[in-house]
Amino acid sequence: MTPITMGLRRGWTELRHTWTTPMDLWAYLFPAILLLGTVFFMRGSTVPGTSFSLGARTLPSVFGMGLVMGGLMTTAQQLIVDREDGTLLRAKAVPNGMTSYLSGKVVLVGGMTLIGFLLQLIPGLFLVDGLAVDGGGWLTLAWLVPVGFVATLPLGAAIGALFDDPRNMGLVMMPLFGLIAVSGIFYPIGGMPGWLQGLAQLFPLYWLGLGMRSVFLPDSLAAVEIGHSWRHLETFGVLVVWAAIGMVLAPVLLRRMARRESGSAVAARRERALTRIGR
């Protein structure tokens, strides 16, 4: 079998294992419960200037946020954990092992992200009123999800290649939480200062939230967005730019990471982990 075929089989096997592991099942359910609960309690509020439910407006935005968290954070965390326990070193020792490993991670992360999306989408459609998808919406969703995934997964791989300690992920999580706050996920950003609006529009998070809102919300809600439109062309363009940036950075950083992997490096990380547990 080719390395990519072996990687696809590996990814599928790892994905199936997440369905039988209590910790992984909780990782699927907890974000969905938390976010759906937040949307439920927002259902009585309305989007400023309209009678439309703020909860119904927030739910599609959360779908976009889920794509970012899956492609970016899950990929980075997988790489960091696999570096620490020696999985990456074993993949490096096998001919074409890194190709197989990375293709497997694409399947695993993509599958986990899709499951998380469905766990939010299906109950969300019954939880809030006002969501509807027409034929054009399904077409938008068909290109938005894969382009968004390609725009975030290589960036997640690049971040994972930079850090070798799970505790350092806080350096990524805190700025990401700040970006969520200013990207119109839970509240329209039209009332924010212009410089914050410009900052949010530099990153994929805002555009994936906007794209998801264009899929599930009525066209009249575009009036509360920047530019009073869904801006599909701009969404596609920004996501493609970030995909290109990730495709350039990720191979360079992953090759550098693979060169530095050795038995002594894995042993040192394992010793640090045991020290943390001992404390």
Rank of each mutant, 00 (worst) to 15 (best):
residue 1 M to N: 09
residue 2 T to E: 05
residue 10 R to W: 12
residue 11 G to L: 04
residue 12 W to A: 15
residue 12 W to K: 04
residue 14 E to M: 14
residue 15 L to D: 02
residue 18 T to P: 03
residue 21 T to W: 03
residue 21 T to L: 09
residue 27 A to F: 11
residue 28 Y to G: 07
residue 30 F to T: 14
residue 31 P to E: 08
residue 34 L to Y: 11
residue 34 L to D: 01
residue 34 L to M: 15
residue 41 F to D: 02
residue 43 R to P: 00
residue 45 S to A: 15
residue 56 A to M: 01
residue 59 L to Y: 06
residue 61 S to L: 03
residue 61 S to C: 08
residue 62 V to D: 00
residue 68 V to N: 01
residue 70 G to C: 07
residue 75 T to E: 07
residue 76 A to S: 15
residue 78 Q to K: 11
residue 79 L to S: 06
residue 81 V to L: 15
residue 87 T to K: 06
residue 93 A to Y: 05
residue 93 A to N: 13
residue 94 V to L: 11
residue 94 V to D: 01
residue 96 N to A: 15
residue 97 G to T: 08
residue 100 S to W: 04
residue 102 L to Q: 02
residue 105 K to A: 10
residue 110 G to S: 10
residue 114 L to M: 14
residue 116 G to C: 05
residue 122 I to P: 01
residue 127 L to S: 07
residue 131 L to A: 09
residue 135 G to M: 05
residue 136 G to R: 05
residue 139 L to K: 09
residue 142 A to N: 00
residue 146 P to M: 04
residue 151 A to G: 04
residue 159 I to A: 14
residue 159 I to R: 02
residue 162 L to S: 10
residue 162 L to M: 14
residue 163 F to K: 02
residue 166 P to G: 03
residue 170 G to W: 10
residue 171 L to S: 10
residue 176 L to A: 14
residue 177 F to C: 06
residue 179 L to C: 07
residue 183 S to A: 13
residue 186 F to K: 02
residue 186 F to Q: 07
residue 189 I to F: 04
residue 192 M to G: 04
residue 194 G to N: 12
residue 196 L to Q: 09
residue 200 A to M: 04
residue 200 A to V: 04
residue 200 A to Y: 04
residue 201 Q to D: 04
residue 203 F to C: 04
residue 205 L to P: 00
residue 206 Y to D: 03
residue 208 L to I: 10
residue 211 G to I: 06
residue 211 G to N: 05
residue 212 M to I: 06
residue 215 V to D: 00
residue 216 F to E: 00
residue 217 L to E: 08
residue 219 D to N: 14
residue 220 S to I: 13
residue 221 L to Y: 05
residue 222 A to Y: 01
residue 222 A to Q: 10
residue 229 S to T: 14
residue 230 W to P: 03
residue 230 W to F: 15
residue 233 L to P: 01
residue 236 F to S: 08
residue 239 L to D: 05
residue 240 V to C: 13
residue 249 L to D: 02
residue 260 R to P: 00
residue 265 A to K: 08
residue 266 V to K: 03
residue 267 A to E: 11
residue 268 A to R: 12
residue 268 A to L: 12
residue 274 L to V: 11
residue 274 L to W: 12
residue 275 T to F: 13
residue 275 T to I: 10
residue 276 R to M: 10
residue 278 G to C: 10
